[in-house]
Design a protein around this nucleic acid. Structure first.
Length: 422
RNA sequence: GCGAGCAUAGCUUAGUAGGCAGAGCGUCAGAUUGUGGCUCUGAAGGUCACGGGUUCGAUCCCCGUUGCUCGCCCCA
């Protein structure tokens, strides 16, 4: 092999591709059940869109974007900004005050790959645009939990926080900065840099030297307005009422600038270092930031590869692929021509069937039929062409039934009725 | 961007205190006339990741490169 796939990408071979498509369709059904409708946006956008929304100082924008054509365009690193862009550009707010959308799409981030992290990866997610009511916060989290439970994924943790409004954060940031500044020499190298740029993010640090300092840091929660706290409490009581268990993580900070108020993350300790499967929260100011009217909104995204690896860990059972109902074994050129036409007719009638295209021996063809798990085989050679009769061999027990070739359609219809063969 | 480990057939891997490269699975074919699974037989398939060095001789030792994996940062 001379040319390999680019770093951080992967090929989905038929078996896995089938499982993925199955999972996708099931996810679509769940979104539909919750009355979310699909939106698809371009693979790339103007780079400016991401700079304005995600934030110029975030890791995603500052070092992880696949950017091209003199930085004019970027492959999308996440979906919220494109969805809001499309929402505004197409005037979806004119359709209804609350728009509920979902997506399943590839994303691109130029990072070092590791377990659960790719440069081209897939996310599915939901965005509910137009409501600031805690009900929609609760629905969003229930939806995520429901998807997990429908795929029999267990042992996950829902982490919940409220990071307030920029005004609330501003007051807090001063306090936080003063506190952290006292320990400035003990902070990790990265956190020293963040102290000036974005001290809030230090709270998210996993470095042990930082953790100790963070433990006693002032909490943003104590600087939130009464209305924010009330809202947060409502979200919590709604979740409890729905039987959703969660834990408050006062230091949960999301790495994208547009988040406000409710934020949440769902983690699993079955995933290795990259343990977050779902991430989401409110972004009440984003619509205005992108030039629209102020419109509250909330959403989440789920990393499909991580989700999928959990499906595998919990041994979620993917239904089997459809098997061929009939494999036609041919002997001789005339028979092949006949079979080619026959299976085309059968396929037009909806029967999945197959024949040999390699001029192989009858034995080899039988082996092939067995390998692909065909329910029936029928040998066609000069004898059959002359007599017009064939033996339908049931592969599960080896019994053969003689029928007229003209009756093959009816025979297969009856077999389909008597249960799934093969 | 930083750190660690790994690299032998399509897959899983064995291997030599440096001396012509092995297995299992898979693939393909055959085991007397036109019938699969089990069994048996056989075949194809490797520049032992790439480049340099040491050596009479390197898959093995040394250096470099690339790739993969895992971790840090950050995120899904």
């Amino acid at each position: 092999m001379i040319i390999q796939k680019p770093k951080g990408t992967y090929d989905l071979l038929p078996e896995k591709a089938f499982s993925r498509v199955y999972a996708e369709s099931k996810i679509r059904e769940i979104f539909d059940l919750f009355n979310y409708r699909e939106i698809r946006t371009p693979t790339f956008e103007y780079t400016l869109l991401f700079k304005r929304s995600i934030g110029e100082n975030t890791d995603i924008v500052s070092k992880e974007m696949f950017t091209f054509n003199n930085s004019q365009y970027s492959l999308k690193p996440e979906m919220t900004a494109p969805v809001i862009r499309a929402y505004l550009e197409n005037g979806l707010y004119n359709q209804s005050p609350l728009i509920k959308l979902y997506y399943i799409s590839n994303m691109y981030r130029y990072e070092r790959p590791q377990a659960g992290r790719f440069r081209e990866f897939s996310q599915f997610g939901a965005e509910a645009i137009g409501s600031s009511e805690p009900f929609i916060d609760a629905e969003m989290i229930v939806l995520a939990a429901f998807i997990l439970s429908e795929f029999q994924i267990r042992n996950y943790k829902i982490k919940l926080n409220n990071i307030g409004t920029p005004d609330e954060r501003k007051k807090y940031l001063e306090k936080l900065f003063n506190y952290l500044n006292k320990f400035k020499n003990d902070l990790s190298g990265d956190s020293k840099k963040r102290l000036q740029k974005n001290p809030l993010r230090i709270l998210d640090s996993k470095m042990t030297e930082d953790r100790k300092i963070i433990e006693n840091a002032p909490r943003l929660y104590d600087y939130l307005e009464q209305s924010t706290i009330k809202n947060f409490e409502q979200v919590q009581s709604l979740l409890s009422g729905l039987g959703i268990s969660y834990e408050i993580d006062y230091f949960l900070v999301r790495g994208l600038d547009y988040y406000t108020s409710t934020t949440f993350e769902i983690v699993s300790d079955e995933l290795g270092a990259q343990d977050a499967i779902f991430g989401g929260g409110r972004y009440d100011l984003l619509t205005k930031q992108l030039g629209g009217k102020p419109t509250p909104a909330i959403g989440f995204a789920c990393g499909f590869e991580r989700f999928f690896s959990l499906m595998e860990k919990y041994e979620y059972c993917i239904p089997e692929e459809n098997k061929c109902i009939l494999y036609i074994v041919t002997s001789g050129n005339k028979a092949s021509v006949f079979a080619l036409n026959l299976i085309y007719e059968l396929r037009k009638s909806g029967f999945k069937c197959e024949m040999d295209y390699l001029n192989r021996s009858i034995k080899s063809q039988m082996k092939e039929a067995n390998k692909i798990n065909a329910a029936y085989t029928a040998v066609i050679g000069n004898n059959e062409l002359d007599s017009g009769k064939i033996l339908m061999k049931k592969m599960s027990d080896g019994n053969q039934t003689e029928i007229n070739i003209n009756n093959i359609n009816n025979f297969l219809i009856n077999e389909n009725k008597t249960g799934k063969t093969g």
